[in-house]
């Protein structure tokens, strides 16, 4: 049965982001197929969402670049000849002790792609770097997933919700301080189902 009235902009936006609840999808899609006006709204919204993403991504990159520049200027300051070694170490100790939270946000970002194929060489990634990870999700259906980071003992360290889009999952993983072996696991996300299915695992080393 088609929707009695046009969908709201929020409903159309959720549709474009593949977040429409299952129980609403049928009526929404049926409406869109026969409503030129709403198709026009969707096309405009697509452009707006694409522009928002480009803008947000560029702003993030600019912030990352500024943070990297600030880090470089810190290092340059510490090598000024007139500074005593004791003073330099003290400044570093204060920075680490007083503002530990800033380390996470200021940490450089390493970009990497991970594949789960057997025989593929395990990736080695730097410690204390945030990881922008592209997970190969070839042959997995598009849709919501949960990504979990576990250490060699299988203890969970971090997890987030994400989406499989175009056979890939894009994640920004917080920096890992401890060297060792880790796994990024992808679980199917189904609402209300506590036993989510493990779809794929990606191994990597941190050094």
């Amino acid at each position: 049965m088609a929707m009695e009235s046009h969908p709201t902009e929020d409903e159309l936006e959720r549709f474009l982001l593949d977040q429409t609840p299952e129980e609403e999808l049928e009526s929404l899609e049926t409406h869109i197929l026969a409503c030129n006006a709403c198709v026009g709204r969707l096309e405009d919204l697509e452009v707006q969402i694409a522009a928002t993403r480009v803008a947000l991504r560029e702003l993030q990159q600019e912030q990352t670049a500024k943070a990297a520049a600030r880090e470089r200027s810190w290092r340059d300051w510490l090598t000024v000849p007139k500074l005593s070694m004791v003073g330099a170490v003290a400044a570093l100790a204060i920075g680490v002790a007083v503002v530990p939270n800033m380390m996470q946000h200021g940490a450089p970002v390493t970009e990497t792609s991970l594949s789960a194929y057997r025989g593929a060489e395990s990736s080695v990634l730097p410690a204390n770097h945030r990881l922008h990870v592209h997970l190969n999700a070839h042959d997995l259906a598009q849709g919501p997933v949960t990504a979990k980071l576990v250490d060699a003992r299988g203890s969970g360290i971090w997890e987030t919700a994400s989406q499989i889009r175009h056979e890939e999952v894009d994640l920004l993983v917080p920096s890992i301080k401890q060297p060792g072996s880790y796994l990024l696991q992808l679980y199917a996300s189904t609402q209300g189902n506590p036993e989510n299915e493990l779809l794929r695992e990606f191994a990597f080393e941190v050094k």
Binding site: Q48, A51, T52, V54, A55, L56, E58, L59
Partner: peptide, 17 residues
């Protein structure tokens, strides 16, 4: 459409900043 997105993105950055 690429040009449209670029134009809107530039404006959007001002708003988001």
């Amino acid at each position: 459409q690429e040009a449209m997105i670029r134009q809107k993105a530039d404006l959007m950055k001002s708003v988001l900043s």
